[in-house]
Amino acid sequence: MRKLRTVLLSTFAISALLVGCSDSKESSSEKSDSVTMKLAHTGSESHQYQIGAKEFADLVEEKSGGEIKIDIHGNSTLGDESEAIEQVMDGSIDMAVVSADSSLANTVPEMNVFGIPYLFEDREHVYSELDGETGDKLLGLIDEKGMKGLGFWEIGFRHLTNNDKEIKIPADLKGMKIRVQPAVVWETHMKALGASATPVSFTELYSALDQGLVDGQENPLSSIYSMRFYEVQKYISLTSHTYSPAVVVMSNRAWDKLSDEQKGWIEEAEAEAATYQRDYLTEKDEEIISELKGEGVTFTEPDRDAFKEATKEVKNSLKNQVPADLIEEIQAK
Rank of each mutant, 00 (worst) to 15 (best):
residue 289 I to V: 15
residue 298 T to E: 10
residue 311 T to I: 09
residue 300 T to P: 04
residue 302 P to A: 00
residue 312 K to A: 13
residue 313 E to C: 01
residue 306 A to Y: 06
residue 283 E to H: 14
residue 296 G to W: 11
residue 313 E to T: 15
residue 303 D to M: 06
residue 310 A to N: 03
residue 286 E to M: 03
residue 287 E to T: 14
residue 310 A to H: 03
residue 313 E to P: 01
residue 301 E to S: 13
residue 307 F to T: 09
residue 313 E to R: 15
residue 313 E to L: 12
residue 285 D to A: 13
residue 304 R to A: 06
residue 285 D to F: 00
residue 285 D to N: 13
residue 300 T to M: 00
residue 287 E to D: 14
residue 310 A to C: 03
residue 289 I to K: 12
residue 288 I to H: 05
residue 310 A to V: 02
residue 303 D to A: 03
residue 288 I to A: 03
residue 296 G to A: 10
residue 298 T to P: 04
residue 294 G to S: 05
residue 295 E to M: 12
residue 292 L to W: 05
residue 312 K to D: 06
residue 305 D to F: 05
residue 287 E to Y: 11
residue 291 E to V: 08
residue 310 A to Y: 02
residue 299 F to N: 10
residue 299 F to M: 08
residue 284 K to V: 08
residue 292 L to N: 08
residue 284 K to G: 09
residue 285 D to S: 10
residue 294 G to P: 01
residue 305 D to Y: 06
residue 301 E to D: 14
residue 312 K to P: 00
residue 304 R to H: 11
residue 306 A to G: 00
residue 297 V to S: 01
residue 313 E to K: 15
residue 312 K to C: 07
residue 283 E to A: 15
residue 283 E to I: 13
residue 292 L to Y: 07
residue 289 I to F: 00
residue 307 F to L: 10
residue 313 E to Q: 14
residue 298 T to Y: 04
residue 290 S to N: 12
residue 306 A to N: 01
